[in-house]
């Protein structure tokens, strides 16, 4: 980093040397480097979310409807639905997750590149919904993958989906390179898969990726 004498005069003592040779410790607290980078990265990330179309049941119709001209998801920069997990950073689970689909869903989630988010759309994906007692229904996709935003409804209207996506944008904008220890764990220590937790990934603001190693 080229720091002229002119610039150095305006920086606090000691910062110039540390900017030239930044140590890992410099990123533990917010400073001029991390906050500026956060701003840029979070702005970019939150306004170009690529959703993975994971329509499993009737809620998928509302998800599709929100993509078309009448509701027009493109207003929020989230219109690029992708059919492959490797090009996506948001999985919209729209519909009933059943026991046969759950391992497939987990696998597709693991194929998505970090940082990644999950929206649980509708009563079924959130809790099992009307099929709570069904013999083949997983009672909530959060039993399989970590969920960031839950959208209630059966089905939620496209407006509700947009509201959920705006909530997700706000969540993305809170990401930071610094302070990995400040990020709240997504689940309590009593979660059954706690032993399998993969540690915080500090380079992306400590988003905790929790996976169950065995289904």
């Amino acid at each position: 980093m080229a720091l002229t004498d002119e610039v150095k005069r305006y920086l606090p003592d000691g910062i110039a040397a540390r900017l030239k040779y930044p140590k890992l410790a410099d990123f533990e607290r917010p400073n001029v480097i991390t906050t500026t980078a956060d701003l840029v990265f979070n702005w970019a990330r939150s306004h170009s979310v690529f959703p993975f179309q994971y329509g499993l049941a009737c809620c998928a119709i509302e998800m599709l409807s929100s993509g078309f001209a009448r509701y027009d998801i493109a207003r929020y920069g989230m219109e690029v639905f992708r059919p492959t997990p490797r090009q996506c950073d948001l999985m919209i689970v729209a519909g009933t997750v059943n026991e046969k689909m759950a391992p497939v869903l987990l696998r597709l989630y693991e194929q998505m590149a970090e940082p990644k988010w999950v929206i649980s759309m509708g009563a079924c994906a959130t809790s099992g919904g009307p099929f709570y007692d069904g013999y083949n229904v997983v009672n909530g996709v959060d039993k399989v993958v970590p969920v960031d935003v839950y959208i209630p409804g059966c089905p939620p209207r496209p407006e509700a989906l947009f509201d959920g996506m705006l909530q997700l944008q706000r969540k993305i904008q809170q990401l930071t390179f610094a302070r990995p220890e400040k990020v709240e764990p997504l689940y309590g220590a009593d979660a059954p898969w706690h032993a399998d937790v993969i540690g915080p990934q500090a380079q992306f603001g400590g988003r905790v990726s929790k996976k169950r190693l065995t289904p």
Partner: peptide, 26 residues
């Protein structure tokens, strides 16, 4: 054809009792 291959039991029978091993995600 509809359920996963290692499902235990046949769920539309009147005397079907669900097996906990059918539900690994709880």
């Amino acid at each position: 054809i509809l359920l996963k291959d290692d499902w235990i039991g046949h769920p539309l029978r009147k005397d079907y009792v669900d097996d906990v091993r059918n539900h690994p995600y709880v």
